[in-house]
Nucleic acid binder design. Structure first.
Lengths: 247, 247
DNA sequence: CAGTGGTCTAGACCACGTC
DNA sequence: ACGTGGTCTAGACCACTGC
């Protein structure tokens, strides 16, 4: 259900290139359009279509006359933000909020997640999608330590807040939240879920939640780019923040 | 210098469609790929390329078997954020900040701007681009009331903060800032400026700055999507904000 | 010079929605 | 049955880069 029904040829090419990037091949350049076309026995336009997508999704960079290259990110940081709890937000809007649990199981965590949560044992992985008035607006992948809250697998996560459960059932006071937001193109594998093309602009969040300085859960999610963040405030001279002395 | 050097045919088609959208034609559907191909005497693939771009940039929506339609935005709001002053941000990074003024002149404001600033006289329009370590990261268009600060045209805006000037020279205390952020695809006309393809994910900000409840300046800007917003905070039960009771 | 990506053509078949 | 968008082909010319 996640992939397109007819499996276009350019999808296979995209997969091939993405895997190659992940395996750190292609460090001095992705195969050229002609090479890909030959390798997959397709026309150059089709190979090109695959690279077009990858470029729009930010995976590769093309330089005319030279070739196609893996893109590096280069993160700066630029400000801060707060995110309102999803349920509260929907309430205020008077909008209909629906939550679906797409996956809920025990996994061996990827290395970065193990590092982030400082725990290398098994984890619970939850994939959740939120709809607002039947429009998919947020897709979240969450990791929790299996030793801390294995029973969460049996909770009704579509109806109850995960934070509620962590606090009230597992007695984990949530004391700190650390998060990062960027704007990215919608990844290919979420295209169907959101009903948008790969590359559609979305917010990408990465959040770690701590209980008493110990990381409890990591969640990353993609949210439609047209979900607006709004703010009105008074620019007082507070803590090196937005204030009149500077631009 | 802003447009591509060879002026591809699909650009003209994009322009045509965008103008049609702005003129509120196409309310019941953009011309089909075949119609556009015939009208512009190009192959269908070329007309299609134009619509591909417009779709990725969020202007139109395609429905297989039905047609291509103008996209409506449908803004919700989702949280809030703060943006650090650009100069301060660059300082902290130890990065090299460069500012270029691309345009600086007196104009008759578009209607929305006149409404936002509650002033229908002439305005000063500033187009500014910021580079961080020689990478273009932010493009801003700013409007100011010509009757309030016409002389700002003669200031060295590349070196001095506009807010500084407003406060210190024009004695306009900035008392309130109201802003909105979404994620959008990079508009076509900024593609060259940023060195990214149209559709590249960027943050889009709209901000109105007030002095004593009177709007003083409106600025909108596009910022690279890989400029991260980061935040670490304690989720206390404050003013309906992020707190443990909810998701 | 050969190779790259950027654009373009004039066809084609398919799945889907409307009538 | 017809029009729509989605995919695909096998060519083509161009501008640019590197050698």
């Amino acid at each position: 259900m996640t992939t397109t029904k007819k499996a276009p040829k350019y999808q296979k090419i995209k997969q091939y290139v993405l895997q190659g990037i992940a395996s750190h091949n292609f460090i001095d350049g992705v195969p050229s359009e002609n090479q890909l076309a030959e390798k997959f026995a397709v026309s150059r336009m089709t190979a090109r279509r695959a690279l077009d997508d990858l470029e729009r999704e930010g995976s590769v960079e093309r330089i005319p006359g030279k070739g196609t290259f893996v893109r590096r990110s280069g993160h700066y940081t630029q400000g801060f933000f707060r995110v309102r709890p999803f349920r509260k937000w929907a309430e205020d809007l008077g909008a209909d909020l629906r939550t679906e649990v797409l996956e809920s199981r025990v996994v061996d965590p990827p290395e970065e997640i193990a590092e982030t949560l400082r725990y290398s044992g098994q984890m619970i992985r939850l994939c959740i999608i939120n709809y607002l008035n039947d429009m998919p607006v947020r897709y979240a992948v969450r990791y929790l330590r299996a030793d801390q809250c294995a029973d969460i697998l049996w909770e009704n996560l579509a109806e109850n807040s995960i934070h509620d459960i962590l606090i009230n059932k597992y007695r984990l006071p949530l004391t700190r939240i650390s998060q990062c937001m960027t704007a990215v193109g919608l990844p290919e594998n979420l295209s169907d879920l959101f009903g948008e093309k790969p590359g559609y602009p979305v917010f990408y969040f990465q959040r770690t939640v701590y209980s008493c300085e110990s990381p409890v859960t990591y969640v990353e999610y993609f949210m439609r780019g047209d979900m607006a963040f709004k703010d009105t405030f008074t620019p007082m001279l507070e803590a090196g923040d937005f204030h009149p002395e500077t631009s």
